[in-house]
Nucleic acid binder design. Structure first.
Lengths: 153, 153
DNA sequence: CGCCTAACGTTAGTGTGCCTAACGTTAGGA
DNA sequence: TCCTAACGTTAGGCACACTAACGTTAGGCG
């Protein structure tokens, strides 16, 4: 009676997805923006390829998302002089404000989503999900530990 | 340090999503098919509208999914003589076989997804997710309890 | 040096899931 | 009878993830 697991998760995910999209969409953003800005702030500037690895966002999707962020003036793209194949992505001050804004919205979304759960239960859930994620996405789960892949000289 | 909750869920969801899509896609099906056949078998025939409510699949998407299932000979569509607005959807014997096939695949996917978790932990996770789903989708969470909405005489 | 391989960024297109909007039909109450 | 509601259908859009292809740049190696 538990062949429901997989679609149960996808169902909850759908709601999470929708709530995130709504919350972010209300200020003209989307999930990718939040993920990218967070990663850039918490782990520093990076090339697009490195960013994609850190955030688990596909390279091809990154282009568009970064274009949007660049258009909004939230990030800058500078070709790495030491390796001209790379674009070094840096957050602007305006981008930091944006990140704060999105983080706040994310918090609201989260409270809404996890409403019926106590703090303890939320921690348990987070722990379980974290383990699943670590298992399926060995790279860049939370604190990467693998540095030196960024934009260094 | 736990503003990660929401995107953590979406990340895990992405993997679940991918695994399901792969598993189902390997036999020319997709998540909707499994959801629909399961619902039809477990809760009996229904009109499309009722089916949509039970499975949380949008009416407009249902049309296409049912077309696919009908083309495969897994379900039949018959207009309800007592209410000619309705199509009564029924599973064929072939559809039952298909459901078994998909259920088996779903189980494999689930085992893969939840690999690192013990049975006890899986139950805990399922419980937490179930509560979230019940909260956000009051209708048709698992055992609906709300009958009389199907295709009755 | 030239050659080859690999990484990088970019574009185009696909698939899945969820959604809105509109339309014609059928039922059923006012 | 009229009006409203539910039904099924079609067309389209959005978010996220993915594949395939292309030109550019780096760097190893003969």
């Amino acid at each position: 009676m538990d062949h429901l697991h997989s679609w149960l998760l996808t169902q909850v995910a759908a709601h999470a997805h929708r709530l995130v999209a709504e919350g972010m969409g209300a200020v003209g953003a989307r999930g990718y923006h939040y993920r990218l800005l967070s990663s850039l702030i918490e782990e520093g500037p990076a090339s697009q390829a490195a960013l994609g690895r850190r955030t688990n966002i596909h390279l091809s999707d990154l282009v568009g998302a970064l274009n949007e962020l660049e258009d909004g003036g939230f990030i800058t793209r500078n070709t790495d002089i030491s390796d001209r194949r790379r674009n070094v992505i840096t957050v602007t001050p305006k981008g930091r404000d944006r990140a704060d804004e999105l983080a706040e919205r994310a918090k609201t979304v989260q409270d809404d989503l996890l409403g019926p759960l106590s703090q303890e239960e939320r921690d348990i859930l987070a722990g379980l999900l974290r383990r699943l994620l670590d298992h399926h996405a060995p790279a860049a789960a939370h604190r990467p530990g693998r540095r030196g892949d960024a934009a260094g000289s």
